[in-house]
């Protein structure tokens, strides 16, 4: 009986969700599972196998959560490019024997309220969904709409995000509009959510005025490392630009490993990796330049 079966990704995500919930509870921490299977179970997106578990914690609990999971063999995947690291909102963990990551968020881009008060509002309205035969805490449905919308709006040049956003618009019932508005105001997310509120026909309320933060502009422009390096290059003082450029062309071995855990460390392997990066970078440069330019006009 039994045998060497491989863990499927959908199984891994659900089991890791239950694990994170259990580990958090054992440490007395509150967590909320955002995006992912919960969004599908709430009927806010179609079936889509997630690659990771997204969990939101209070900012002061981030290190503790990462430590607790570290005690279970989950290792931190360092974040990459400098400009992305500056706006870091999560820490990504992986386990050599699991085929999914765990993203531990201490805040969510687009929500400009202080991370602690945002968490408190989301925790206050939480409910529970059964995942892997265990009840786990998730945001309310209006909050889940906000997470999903912000997630999509951050990268609308991605066809999958476009599809998910369109699907979300169809799934948001008019009876939810007032709750959405109230929560958007409380989370100070109305500026980033302007496209959603406009598409739902509820963007004209005076309380919904506001401008997007600098971070949100970065988030919606610097999607890949190419744009991130470009933004970093533009924004750096002249004396630092050569260093940024050098890092873009010849990133450290550690940076390369962050993107590929199975990096071939030999000279020929590193050379092949660099050449492959340069090809991708050159091919993506025009699009990255257009995005960066458009973002800076906003």
């Amino acid at each position: 009986m039994g045998g060497a079966e491989t863990l499927h990704q959908d199984e891994a995500v659900l089991l890791a969700t239950a694990l994170v919930d259990y580990v958090a509870a054992s440490g007395g921490l509150h967590v909320l599972f955002i995006k992912g299977p919960g969004t599908t179970m709430m009927g806010l997106r179609g079936h889509h196998v997630s690659a990771d578990v997204d969990v939101l914690v209070r900012p002061e609990d981030l290190d503790r959560m990462v430590d607790l999971l570290g005690g279970r063999g989950w290792l931190e995947r360092p974040s990459g490019v400098t400009v992305v690291r500056r706006y870091s909102h999560s820490r990504t963990l992986y386990h050599p024997q699991w085929n999914c990551d765990i993203d531990v968020h201490d805040r969510f881009p687009g929500m400009e309220a202080s991370p602690g008060s945002a968490f408190d509002a989301l925790w206050r309205d939480r409910h529970y969904l059964v995942m892997a035969a265990r009840p786990v805490p998730v945001p309310s449905i209006p909050a889940a709409v906000i997470f999903q919308a912000l997630h999509s709006l951050r990268a609308m040049d991605d066809p999958r995000h476009q599809r998910e956003y369109s699907g979300l618009l169809q799934r948001v019932d008019v009876s939810m509009h007032q709750d959405l508005v109230d929560l958007s105001v409380e989370l100070q997310a109305t500026a980033a959510l302007q496209p959603l509120l406009a598409d739902l026909g509820i963007a004209d309320l005076p309380a919904l005025q506001g401008t997007v933060s600098e971070e949100w502009r970065h988030r919606t422009s610097a999607q890949g490392p190419g744009t991130a390096y470009l933004v970093s290059l533009i924004e750096s003082p002249w004396r630092v630009k050569p260093l940024v450029l050098a890092r873009a062309v010849f990133p450290s071995r550690q940076t390369l490993r962050e993107r590929d855990l199975y990096l071939d460390d030999s000279i020929s392997g590193l050379f092949r990796t660099h050449v492959s990066r340069w090809r991708r970078g050159l091919a993506g440069l025009p699009a990255a330049a257009r995005k960066t330019k458009a973002s800076r006009r906003r």
Binding site: E11, R72, G73, H95, Q97, A132
Partner: peptide, 13 residues
């Protein structure tokens, strides 16, 4: 797919 939450990895039955 079964995981005892005190264990590190799941087993598949």
């Amino acid at each position: 797919a079964v995981l005892h939450l005190e264990q590190h990895v799941p087993v598949i039955l």
